[in-house]
Computed example of a mutant assay.
Amino acid sequence: MRTGAAAGHVGYFHEAILYDSDEHLLAVVLPFLTGGVEAGEPTVVGLGARNADLVRRALPAGAGVTFLPGGDVYARPTGAIRAYRELLAGHVAAGATQIRIVGELPPVVFGATWDWWARYESAINHAYDEFPLWSMCAYDRRVAPPHVLADVARTHPRIAGPDDAHEPTGVYTEPVSYLAEHHPAPLDPLQHTTPAVDLTDPTPARAREAVRAADHGLLSPDGVDDLVMAVSEVVCNALRHGTTPVRVRVWCAADRIVVTVHDRGPGPKDPYAGLLPAGDGSEGGLGLWITHQSCDHVTSHRDADGFTIRLTAGNAHFPV
Rank of each mutant, 00 (worst) to 15 (best):
H192M: 08
A58E: 08
A278P: 05
V73T: 10
H182A: 12
A58Q: 15
R240I: 09
L105P: 07
A83K: 06
L47S: 14
T194F: 05
G103R: 11
P186L: 07
P106L: 00
E167N: 09
L179C: 11
F307Y: 14
H292V: 04
A273H: 04
L239S: 04
E283V: 12
D226M: 04
D163M: 11
E283C: 14
I101T: 03
D188V: 10
G223T: 01
C236Y: 15
P132Y: 15
S21A: 03
D296W: 04
H156F: 01
T155I: 07
L26V: 12
G4E: 06
V73S: 10
I99C: 03
G217T: 09
Y178F: 15
G274Q: 05
P157L: 05
R57P: 07
G265Y: 10
T260Y: 09
G267D: 02
D305A: 10
S282G: 13
A254C: 00
A75K: 11
L275D: 13
E15P: 12
D72T: 13
R50G: 08
H156R: 01
V211P: 07
V37Y: 04
V261I: 11
G8M: 06
T173M: 10
C236F: 08
V152K: 03
V37H: 02
D198G: 02
H182Q: 05
L54T: 12
E104D: 08
L276G: 00
C252T: 07
M136N: 05
Y272V: 00
R56W: 15
D140G: 05
D222E: 13
E104I: 04
S135A: 14
A316D: 13
S294F: 08
V143M: 05
L87P: 09
R249T: 06
G287N: 09
D72A: 10
P245E: 13
V298G: 01
L68M: 11
G36Q: 04
G223W: 05
R142D: 14
V108H: 09
G287R: 04
P277F: 07
T34V: 15
A96K: 02
I309F: 13
R56N: 07
V152G: 01
A138V: 06
A5H: 14
R302Y: 07
L276Y: 02
D255K: 03
G71C: 09
T66H: 08
A5Y: 08
P184I: 09
T43A: 06
Y19I: 13
A185W: 07
R56H: 14
L33A: 04
A196S: 06
G79Y: 00
V45E: 05
L133T: 06
D263H: 12
E209W: 07
L87M: 11
H183F: 02
Y74G: 15
